[in-house]
Design a protein around this nucleic acid. Structure first.
Lengths: 184, 184
DNA sequence: GGCTACATGTAACAAGTTACATGATTTT
DNA sequence: AAAATCATGTAACTTGTTACATGTAGCC
């Protein structure tokens, strides 16, 4: 996609939290509290190499016997500057694709039960996400305390997720009711 | 992206609402009430050609003097079957990328005012979207009435948007308050 | 014995955006 | 006179996913 990639900033931002290897970055992004971003290994590893080539990160190779080398990346001052420059820029809204809503929108072409099933699956996913979000919020506070700068912002984005999650669970319930009414 | 494309079903679904040309499909998808999906011309036009080649749509060329031909596509029974087969399949959650939240998450690396500006821009966008959503909901009901099958499902997806929009406006207000407290 | 976690990477491929080309008509 | 809307399309390009390759260590 010709849309300019944000992978660089996602990775720089992660490294700015502290030195990490590619695997750790991926693990972080897979947490429920990072619901708003994702990157694949196919993006992360080449980007890390590129960051070092451009002086935005340094690399320390940790050799471990019998296990593959671990590559720990550390952000440089230039890297931090690049990150901060991006942070000052307004965010561009990314186009959305929600398959569940697309199916529901065309729902007149299938049975009510099919539509109900789509909404129920969403509700299940929301409930699981909510539990994970709650758990990770607690872990975050336990580990760093509430006054930590990073925790403060983590709680803001986590709160966004919780807000949307709550609202959507209600929408699911209301929608399921309307669909069940339709059926009878 | 190796992830299987849903463009085919988005286009088929649109054609199922009635015969349309590529331009009209794009216009429909640009409406605020279609916030949950997007396609570019670069996807739509080649897909329409492919649908005809696969017998999922027929094509009628309307010649107009001095203006370029208009190509009106009509879904076939095979196309309708293909759409219905997809509607019966569970929806896969699409990965999300929200640049604004990524910036806020890394917010400790910039000034509070920058973070406030990000949230304020989101709030503006939400307000505009809300107005459009309200307007389009009214137009939909005025044009087809509340009992129409298509309208029923359109109102469900529109309601999803309104629910999230409401919740997010509240989140913006709360977040702005927290950020302003931080500043002092 | 098999599964999961740890750890790095790449190549092939698919998907999707943007910019361009073309040109009439309608609105501002 | 300029800008937007109507209308079709493609080529170049970027982005991003998936599948694969490789191997250890620890757990059930």
């Amino acid at each position: 996609m010709a849309r300019e990639s944000r992978t660089k900033y996602a990775v720089l931002g992660m490294l700015n939290q502290g030195p990490k290897c590619g695997y750790e970055i991926k693990k972080e992004l897979e947490k429920s509290s990072m619901f708003f971003w994702n990157e694949s290994y196919g993006q992360i590893y080449p980007m890390l190499k590129k960051l070092v080539a451009n002086g935005l990160s340094t690399l320390e190779v940790i050799e471990r016997d019998e296990q593959p080398d671990m590559k720990v990346y550390t952000i440089t001052d230039d890297g931090r500057e690049e990150l901060e420059r991006w942070l000052r820029q307004p965010a561009e809204p990314h186009p959305i694709r929600n398959e569940m809503l697309l199916k529901l929108f065309f729902g007149a072409s299938t049975s009510i039960d099919m539509n109900i099933a789509h909404v129920e699956r969403l509700k299940d996913r929301l409930q699981r996400q909510q539990e994970n979000l709650d758990q990770e919020r607690e872990e975050l506070i336990d580990e760093f305390g509430e006054d930590d700068q990073m925790v403060f912002f983590g709680l803001l984005t986590s709160g966004y997720g919780q807000t949307v999650n709550d609202a959507l669970q209600k929408w699911c319930d209301e929608t399921l009711e309307k669909l069940r009414e339709m059926r009878s």
